[in-house]
């Protein structure tokens, strides 16, 4: 009885610990080990098995590498389906993700050996390049997920996204009423600042954090600096500065998020294009056998 309880405790403890282990280290680096062993064995095979007249995707070893690579690619790309169907168990999502990452990395070696280092402007190399693109963006993704969220958190200063928008809206409302006494030219600057979408700047602006067309900054630049004596102008300048600060926080948030998400916009379409290129690769090779 006691030992049963002890077992249960240990199991629970294990589970609790496991919940806080990175998917990279899952099960004591299980998938890193699997991927490393696979890579070493296949590389040794490539080095030691003589392929006549030269290593080539069409030798028996080349077909073996190609088959392993194809199955891995198809399986690893199924993570996109698996993650949408939560089913706990030994094949947990963490397990899948761990396998996805480590086996995905091993594909750089398997795929390269399959090419026999023969590269050209053709559908076969297209598939290889797409595979590398997927892997490289995946590596970036892991780096991004490991490092960027901390910056996201520190930038927030305990504000939620709605808080940030809310704060900006509040400033805007005040700006609108504070700007009432301003002359036409200054009013137009304020109107432009207020009228510009919070998310103005597009993907490039988000990624670089550079917004050369920012109407708030333009308005600020054209408002008299320091105390002009005009109370209304000072108040508007003050509010515009606050607006710019608030926008700055939002944009830092946007930048980190964009850096955090951008790899998926290459990783996913490149994966689907890779599956299409693989199909074309396999069919064309045997069509023109």
């Amino acid at each position: 009885m006691a030992s049963k309880a002890q077992n249960k405790f240990q199991q629970d403890e294990q589970r609790r610990n496991a919940d806080h282990v990175s998917f990279l280290k899952h099960r004591n680096w299980r998938w890193l080990k699997v991927a490393a062993i696979l890579t070493v064995i296949l590389s040794l095979g490539y080095a030691l098995i003589d392929q006549e007249p030269r290593p080539n995707g069409g030798s028996w070893y080349g077909y073996t590498l190609g088959t392993i690579g194809l199955l891995l690619i198809v399986w690893l790309s199924l993570l996109g389906i698996r993650k949408r169907r939560p089913t706990p168990g030994s094949w947990s999502l963490k397990n899948w993700t761990s396998a996805h990452v480590w086996l995905g990395l091993s594909l750089t070696v398997i795929g390269t050996l399959h090419t026999g280092f023969q590269i050209g402007w053709n559908v076969h190399t297209l598939a290889y390049v797409l595979m590398l693109l997927v892997i490289v963006t995946g590596i970036y993704g892991i780096w991004a997920y490991a490092t960027l969220p901390a910056g996201l958190s520190s930038n927030r200063k305990e504000m939620t996204r709605s808080d940030m928008i809310e704060a900006l809206t509040a400033i805007d409302r005040q700006l609108e009423s504070a700007a009432q006494p301003l002359d036409r030219q200054q009013s137009d600057l304020v109107i432009a600042a207020l009228g510009q979408n919070v998310f103005y700047g597009g993907a490039l602006g988000r990624l670089t954090g550079s917004y050369p067309g920012c109407a708030t900054n333009r308005a600020l630049k054209n408002m008299p600096m320091g105390r002009s004596g005009e109370e209304a102008e000072d108040r508007v300048t003050n509010l515009l500065t606050r607006r710019a600060d608030q926008l700055g926080q939002i944009r830092r948030h946007l930048r980190i998020r964009a850096l955090l998400e951008v790899w998926l916009f290459i990783h996913i379409p490149a994966t689907i294009a890779l599956l299409a290129a693989l199909l074309a690769h396999v069919i064309s090779v045997f069509y023109y056998w």
Binding site: V123, L126, F265, I268, P269, A270, T271, I272, A273, L275, A276, A277, L279, A280, I283, S284
Partner: peptide, 14 residues
């Protein structure tokens, strides 16, 4: 994007 790229590959190259 996935559909477009995959479509281009499948049509033009296959």
């Amino acid at each position: 994007m996935s559909w477009i790229f995959a479509g281009i590959v499948l049509v033009a190259l296959l």
